[in-house]
Design a protein around this nucleic acid. Structure first.
Lengths: 333, 333
DNA sequence: CTGAAAGCGCTAACAT
DNA sequence: ATGTTAGCGCTTTCAG
C-alpha cells in the first residue's frame, strides 16, 4: 500500500494540514521542530505526494503538452529537446504528441490533453485550411504557445521564424552566385511556412528581374523521398540549381544528384533549410538556412510558463531570424 | 466554469452514477432512452471527464513514461515514434524524458512519473554501474519495460537487441572483405550495449585467429564529434578500416576520412550500427547493422499494455536480431 | 434500471 | 503553530 499524507500525519502526531504545509514548503506556520520530524518521516517512509489528488484541488498539474508533426524529423526533435530540457528545469513534464499534420489527430490530442488537465500546450503544427480548433483552444483559456504557425488572432502568443526572409536569403544567395534557373522544391503548400518560403523565393527572383517559372517549382512533402524523386524529375529538365525548403528533402536531392552522375557543387548547387545537425557532416556540407530550433523550444516553454503563472510577457510574438549558413554545396558559376 | 458530471446529471434528471455509467460504456444497467439523453447532453455541453478525478479513484491514468537518453538521436526518435504511435492507438499518452544517461536525472524522472501515477514506464537507458534504481522500480510493481539494457533480475521484462551478434556480423563482414587491421570505435563503455558490441568485434576477430589490438580500439561517446575526432587519430595511425558502434559516430568518421583526403570505400571502409534513416542517403550509403527501432518501440508499448492490464505475456524477454545492411561504404580489398 | 453515499489523497480556508 | 473540515470530480459498492 502506498504511503499517504495521512500516514505521515499519524506517525508524526500532527494533522494532515501540517504535513501538507511542510511538503509544500509553506514557510510560515510550522515549528522548526515539527517540520524536521515530518521531513524525517517523509524520507523514511518514502512518501511521495499524489499528483492526481493535488491536481484535482489546485487545478495545476505541472504538465504540458507538446504537439508536433513528427518527432522523427530532426528539426522537431531539436525543438522537443529544447522544450523538454527547459520544462524539466521548471519542474514540468511534457506529453509528446505526433500529429503528422493530421487535423483529426490534432483534435484528439487537444482533447486528451485537456482531460488530463495540462497546464499549457505548445503547438507546433501548421495546417492552413482549418485553424478553428486552434482559435478555439486559445479561447478556452488554456495557455498555448504557437510555433511555426501564425494565425490572425489578437490573442495568439507564439514563436515564429521569418520564413519569407529565409526563402529570400536562400534564393538571393544562389542569385548572387550567378545562377538564373533556380528550381524550388517547396514543402506541402497547405503549410503556411512552406508558402512563405516560396514567397521569399519569388521575392528574390523578382528583385533580380525574374519571374517564377512554374516548370521548375515543385511541391514536396518535407520528406526525404520527396526530395529525391522531385530532384530526379527536375534534373531531367536540365535544372542544376536547387533551393530545397527543408534539409531532409535536400538530402534526398543530393542523393539524386550524385546518382545522376553530377557533383556538388561543381555541377549542381543546393541550398537547404533548417540546418539540422547532420547538415554539416554530409558530403559536401550543406549550405542552408539556419533555424535555432533548440533555442526556439526553450523559448517556447519559457513563455508558456510565464503564461501559466500569469506573468506578463514582453512580446506576444517572438520572431526568430533565419540565418544563411554557407557551406560547400553551393559555388559561384 | 468547466462542465462536470454533476452538471450533466442535473440537466438529465439522473444521478451522477448513471452518467458515470454511460460515459464509461458500462453496457449493463442503463436504459436505452436514458443513455441517449445523456449522450446528447454530453455532446451539447462539451463535457469532458476530468482525468485527474478519475485517476484518483481508479489508480489508472492511461499515461506512460518513456525514459530515453536523448530524443535528438535519430535512433531514439524512431523508438519514441513507435512507442507514441502505438500508445495512441491504445488510448495512452506518453511523457517524454531525456536523461543523457545521467543517473541523477533518471531517478528524478522515475519519481516524477510515480507521483503522476503513470500506468507504466518504458526505460531505454543503459548505464551499467548503478542499476539499483531500476531493480527498485521493478520491485515497486509498476509495470516496466526495459529496452536496450539487460539486467540480471528474474522479473525483468524487456526488449533487447543482440548487440554481441551485431558487433560480430559487422566485424565479420569486414574480415570477409579481406581486412585485417580493423579499428573499433565503441560507445561509452559504461553502457552494456557498447560493451557487448565490442565483445562481438572480439569474437569475430578471434574466429579469424586474431587478437584485439588495443591501439586501434577507442572508446567513443556515441556522438558525432566523437566519431570525427577519434577517426582523425586512428587515421593518423594508418587505420583504414572501421567498425563504428553507431551511425551517428560513423557520420563523423566519414567526414574525417574525406577531410583527410581519402575516399570511401576505395581507400577506407566503414561499418556503422543502428541504420538510422539518413544512413542510406549519405554519400556513400552506409553499410551498417540494422536495428528495427520503430518496431521495437511499438513492441515495447504492446508488452507494457499487456503488463498494465494484467495479461499474460508470452516471453518476458524479446530479443530482436540485428541485420547487416550492406551498402557502399565497404568494399573488398 | 437507477440512486445514495463513501471515499480516492490532497489543499485551502477557517478555527483554535 | 497547528487542527478541522469542506470539497476537487469522479468511480464504485450497496440499496432499492
Amino acid at each position: 500500500m502506498k504511503v499517504t499524507i495521512r500516514d505521515i500525519a499519524e506517525k508524526a502526531n500532527v494533522s494532515i494540514a501540517t504535513v501538507s504545509r511542510v511538503i509544500n514548503n509553506k514557510s510560515e506556520g510550522v515549528g522548526e521542530e515539527t517540520r524536521k520530524r515530518i521531513l524525517k518521516l517523509v524520507k523514511e517512509l518514502g512518501y511521495q505526494p499524489n499528483a492526481l489528488a493535488r491536481g484535482l484541488v489546485t487545478k495545476k498539474t505541472k504538465t504540458v503538452g507538446l504537439i508536433i508533426p513528427d518527432i522523427t524529423n530532426p528539426f522537431f526533435a531539436d525543438i522537443a529537446r529544447g522544450v523538454e530540457d527547459q520544462a524539466n528545469l521548471f519542474g514540468y513534464n511534457v506529453f509528446l504528441c505526433n500529429t503528422d499534420d493530421d487535423l483529426d489527430k490534432e483534435n484528439k490530442y487537444i482533447n486528451a490533453l485537456k482531460e488530463k488537465y495540462v497546464d499549457g500546450i505548445i503547438f507546433t503544427s501548421s495546417s492552413i485550411p482549418n485553424q478553428n480548433h486552434i482559435v478555439e483552444l486559445i479561447k478556452t483559456g488554456i495557455p498555448t504557445i504557437l510555433m511555426d504557425r501564425q494565425i490572425d488572432d489578437k490573442h495568439v502568443v507564439g514563436i515564429f521564424i521569418d520564413n519569407l526572409l529565409g526563402g529570400y536569403i536562400a534564393t538571393k544567395h544562389l542569385l548572387e552566385l550567378g545562377y538564373s534557373r533556380i528550381a524550388c522544391i517547396t514543402g506541402p503548400l497547405f503549410l503556411k511556412s512552406a508558402v512563405e518560403r516560396l514567397q521569399g523565393y519569388e521575392k528574390a527572383l523578382n528583385e533580380y528581374g525574374m519571374e517564377v517559372d512554374n516548370e521548375i517549382v515543385a511541391e514536396g512533402t518535407y520528406k526525404m523521398e520527396s526530395g529525391y524523386e522531385t530532384a530526379k524529375e527536375l534534373l531531367a529538365k536540365g535544372v542544376r540549381t536547387f533551393f530545397v525548403c527543408n534539409d531532409i528533402m535536400a538530402l534526398g536531392v543530393c542523393k539524386a544528384v550524385k546518382e545522376s552522375g553530377y557533383n556538388i557543387p561543381e555541377d549542381v548547387s543546393v541550398v537547404g533549410f533548417d540546418d539540422i545537425q547532420i547538415s554539416h557532416v554530409i558530403e559536401p556540407p550543406l549550405t542552408t538556412v539556419r533555424q535555432p530550433s533548440y533555442d526556439m523550444g526553450k523559448e517556447a516553454i519559457k513563455m508558456l510558463v510565464k503564461l501559466i503563472e500569469g506573468k506578463k510577457i514582453r512580446k506576444k510574438i517572438v520572431k526568430f531570424k533565419p540565418e544563411l549558413v554557407i557551406r560547400q554545396s553551393t559555388k559561384a558559376i
